[in-house]
């Protein structure tokens, strides 16, 4: 099995760096931790260079794997030999705290781990589930009448999380209703999940201000660009990111229609044949689409701009189909 060699070597590395208490230099790691190739006595200069380069590549990859596993390697600089970097693992900081999940909680966590249809996040989720299983006394309860799927662009999620962690800028193709399709360069700060949709919030480098991007409007791949540690994530997010106060719209709906709106809204009397209701909304475009979907069984009274948007959308569609 291909994973055997790497898994064994990484285990040896974890044991060595946790146990040493002090730091270990690269040279010492290479010489003593099982699984790394040392240079045999009498090797030619060429062979030595080749093996040195191979070790560097392998060690860099292992460091990356440990970070992906959740173990950040601490670099410790020797006070006497300042240029000689050592590594160690802080055991207490690296350990998973006890979780103490109930059987019902374990069952729903298991279902959540199956949510991502995409391979990348799916693997991350299953790895997380393995960790949950190793820190829980209980076993999942058997019967849960729930399942979930998501078609979220999870490759983008994985790339963004990685970039946030390393504080690297990202570049991606993006389509917005306002400015069409363009390439954006962003300092990624955090992901936000709202109503089943994922958003990226961060600093848009070209526009010079904080912006929110909906992941379903990304196209192409997300590429990390530039150096690690290129920016700081603000401790307090800008006010523009806060959930906006809900607005209130006044709608007129026909008798025996608009049931879902009625269920959420409050009656405000009548206007001729129409019932008037007040509905609170967080996202004006969602309410607009709901009114459009009712195909004339509802109209917007206030705000006037929302009424204009409803008209503009209906006119646009009408012009397109009449060509």
């Amino acid at each position: 099995m291909a994973g055997t060699e790497a898994a064994g070597r990484l285990l040896n590395l974890i044991i060595a760096l946790t146990d040493s208490g002090a730091r270990m230099t690269r040279e010492r790691i290479r010489a003593t931790v099982e699984g790394y190739d040392t240079v045999p006595a009498g090797a030619s200069e060429d062979e030595r260079r080749r093996l040195d380069a191979a070790f560097e590549r392998k060690f860099e990859r292992d460091k990356d794997d440990l970070r992906r596993l959740g173990i950040p390697l601490r670099t410790v600089v020797d006070p006497i030999h300042g240029d000689d970097i050592g590594y160690r693992i802080d055991a207490a900081a690296a350990a998973l705290p006890p979780l103490d999940l109930s059987p019902a909680e374990l069952a729903v966590v298991g279902i959540a781990a199956d949510l991502w249809s995409d391979a990348t996040l799916g693997e991350d989720a299953r790895q997380a589930l393995t960790k949950v299983a190793s820190a829980s006394d209980e076993r999942p309860s058997e019967r849960v009448v729930l399942s979930g799927t998501s078609s979220a662009v999870a490759d983008a999620v994985a790339a963004l999380v990685e970039a946030i962690e390393l504080r690297r800028e990202v570049r991606f193709g993006y389509t917005s209703a306002a400015s069409g399709s363009s390439t954006r360069t962003v300092r990624p700060w955090r992901l936000v999940l709202r109503g089943g949709a994922l958003y990226l919030q961060g600093h848009d480098v070209d526009r010079g201000e904080p912006r929110t991007f909906r992941l379903s409007r990304f196209h192409g791949t997300v590429r990390a660009v530039g150096d690690e540690g290129a920016f700081e994530i603000p401790a307090a997010m800008p006010a523009a990111f806060e959930e906006q106060e809900p607005g209130e719209a006044l709608l007129a709906v026909r008798a025996e229609a608009g049931h879902a709106l009625r269920a959420r809204g409050a009656a405000r009397g009548r206007d001729g044949e129409w019932d008037v209701i007040a509905v609170r909304y967080h996202h004006a475009d969602q309410l607009r689409d709901e009114v459009l979907a009712l195909a004339g069984a509802a109209r917007v009274i206030e705000p006037l701009w929302l009424a204009d948007e409803v008209r503009a959308h209906a006119r646009g569609a009408l012009e397109a189909v009449r060509g």
């Binding site: 992906r68 596993l69 959740g70 998973l96 960790k131 962690e165």
Partner: peptide, 8 residues
């Protein structure tokens, strides 16, 4: 067992 990584 080690803590969750950011991606996990």
């Amino acid at each position: 067992q080690v803590r969750f990584s950011a991606r996990e």
